[in-house]
């Protein structure tokens, strides 16, 4: 029976502290609407949930593709009917597009960071780079589509051979996730134009987008090795 004074321990997460102390105006909830329409006036009590959440999401997605991968390996080993084929070259162009888009997204991030940090007075159209990213992303998806067209032109359809089945399944699933990322970007741009974009929103979207690159690189290598 030791006597212990129960003091609230240091709160490790900024969010907790901020909210507990109710720093930002309305009852501790982070204030979003800029005081006078200038987002530099917005103190960014960015919510960690978004940044934690994205990692959780990434874990889930990785798990899903891990499952696909093991399915691929098992299926290839289960029967001698696995047919190898040359990947449509357009994939490499797409890869370049996707990486370019990540680059442009980083450009956008630095612009907006500078702008928010107030080191620049006028926004040098921070949305521009975001639009470029958006465009490149769309091109990537179109590129994947042409890849499918080329394969089917070569007579390789979903059901032709397990190898082609997996090609379509993996690329399509990835493309879907990219489309999701594009929606995220649209959301970011809307926020930016409304001058209520918050850094975490941008960072989260960016993290997801870069993850799409990594994931694609992984898939490309997997397909290149296995098909």
């Amino acid at each position: 029976m030791a006597t212990t004074i129960h003091e609230p321990p240091k709160v490790e997460r900024s969010a907790g502290k901020l909210r507990a102390e109710g720093v930002s105006g309305d009852g501790g909830w982070r204030n979003l609407s800029p005081a006078d329409g200038d987002i530099r006036a917005v103190q960014d009590y960015s919510s960690p949930p978004a940044s934690t959440g994205i990692w959780v999401g990434i874990t889930g997605i990785s798990m899903m593709f891990a499952a696909f991968t093991s399915a691929l390996v098992v299926r290839q080993g289960s029967a001698p009917d696995w047919r190898h084929f040359i990947l449509p070259p357009v994939l490499y162009a797409n890869t370049a597009l996707l990486f370019a888009s990540s680059f442009s997204l980083e450009m956008a991030r630095r612009r907006i960071a500078a702008f928010m940090g107030g080191t620049r007075n006028r926004a040098e159209r921070p949305a521009l780079w975001l639009h470029i990213t958006l465009g490149l992303g769309l091109l990537f998806v179109l590129g994947q589509y042409t890849a499918w067209r080329q394969l089917s032109a070569r007579g390789l359809f979903v059901a032709t051979n397990p190898s082609s089945s997996f090609f379509y399944v993996l690329t399509a699933t990835h493309a879907l996730h990219v489309l999701g990322g594009l929606l995220g970007l649209v959301y970011v741009i809307r926020k930016l134009n409304a001058m209520v974009l918050r850094r975490t929103t941008l960072d989260t979207a960016a993290r997801y987008w870069h993850f799409m690159d990594v994931l694609w690189l992984y898939l490309l290598i997997l397909l290149w090795v296995k098909l």
Binding site: V56, G60, M63, A67
Partner: peptide, 27 residues
């Protein structure tokens, strides 16, 4: 998070075996 992320792809492959005539699970 980890369990359902594995069942989901499994179901996708199963559906494909049905509707797309693939052979993931059928010998």
């Amino acid at each position: 998070l980890t369990a359902f992320a594995v069942l989901l792809p499994a179901c996708i492959l199963l559906i494909l075996d049905h509707v797309a005539g693939t052979s993931f699970f059928v010998a």
